[in-house]
Amino acid sequence: MAFITDKEVLKSGLIIFRRGDVEHRNFYCRIKLPKEDRYKTISLHTSDRESARDRAFDQDADIRFRVKHDVAVFNRPFRQVAADYLQTQQRRADTGEVSHDRVKNLRNAFKKALEDYVGSTQIHLIGQDSWAGYPTWRRENGKGRFREHISDAAIQFEMGALNAVMNFAITKRLVPASHRFEGRPKLKTMRRDEFTIEEYRKLHSVGRKWIRAATTPQAHFPSTIIDLYDPAKMPDNLRRAHEANDEVLERIYIGRRFKNDTERLEKLFELYTKMTKAKVAA
């Protein structure tokens, strides 16, 4: 390294030096991790060589203790590790391994939720308690995009993002493997009895566009209602109106779009079962 000056080898794997690219004359030490081809550089905050030697040996002893007892050596805040993880995912998206939408959703999860929860926390201090406590914290400190409460789907995705960053930190050896999260907290969706006023407004708005698209004779003459609702012949504006209505309704119930028709039918049967049970009980 060209910027290293006044270098002194104290022992194998431990040196002290000054930096030629800074104005101050304080010493640094560089320590080789035992049995690894990795180094940690630490500022010693002194310009006195003898004091620098003593502090370097103290830092070396501390590093060896950490390695022996499986304690993190490289401390970084969650937001920095998350940023590094996002960069790797962006490269994967650029090569087609993952979608760009996934990277966008991950970035939103970090920015809108996880930053407030653990952004400034050192990665090695994020443990099982933080993992288990996230759903409660999230419901207490946020609202859903289309409903009053945060959906289970949103919480699950954010927890997946948190878990991915922790696994990334483990692979980069920023934390030991013992920091891997165990299990996943059980989520329980809050019971829905009726739509909120805001949800009614959204449904009313998209519903009017849907009806207008389907009942404007000038736009689709001489097509009949059967023609309009033939999947192969449905006009683009009517299809878009339907999709907008479906999206609002689906996000109200599960916080996202249904993955496929099977999932959509499962939800419909679930709602039907609840409705019929309620009528029988009454």
Score class of each variant (00 low, 15 high):
C29N: 07
G160I: 06
P77I: 03
R257A: 10
D48W: 03
K277M: 11
V22D: 07
T196A: 12
I63A: 00
R25V: 07
A153H: 09
S151E: 07
F27H: 03
E270I: 00
D227V: 03
K279R: 14
A213G: 01
K279P: 00
R139P: 11
R191T: 11
R91D: 12
K172P: 01
L238K: 00
K186C: 06
A214K: 06
R256A: 08
K233N: 10
G142E: 04
N260F: 08
A281N: 08
V9E: 07
R208Q: 14
I225E: 06
G20D: 05
V165I: 11
M190T: 13
R264Y: 07
F17I: 06
S120T: 11
T171F: 08
A83Q: 13
A213C: 03
H45D: 09
E270R: 05
V165F: 07
G13M: 04
D230C: 05
P77H: 01
L86F: 06
I31Y: 00
R145N: 12
E263F: 04
T273F: 11
T215P: 01
V175W: 07
G127E: 01
D84M: 09
V9T: 13
S223D: 12
I123C: 03
K277Y: 07
A72S: 15
K104D: 11
E115G: 03
A52G: 01
I197P: 07
G133P: 07
K277A: 13
T41I: 06
T224D: 00
E8K: 08
R173K: 15
P185A: 05
V280K: 13
E270N: 07
L125R: 14
G183S: 08
F78I: 02
N75I: 14
K68P: 00
R173G: 03
D84K: 04
M166I: 04
L203I: 15
E243F: 09
D70G: 02
R191P: 10
Y85A: 04
D227G: 03
D58W: 09
V280Y: 09
N245G: 10
V118P: 00
D60P: 02
Y117F: 15
N108T: 12
L271G: 05
K188L: 06
Y117N: 07
V280M: 10
E182V: 14
A154Q: 12
R239A: 05
R107M: 09
R64P: 00
T216E: 14
P77A: 01
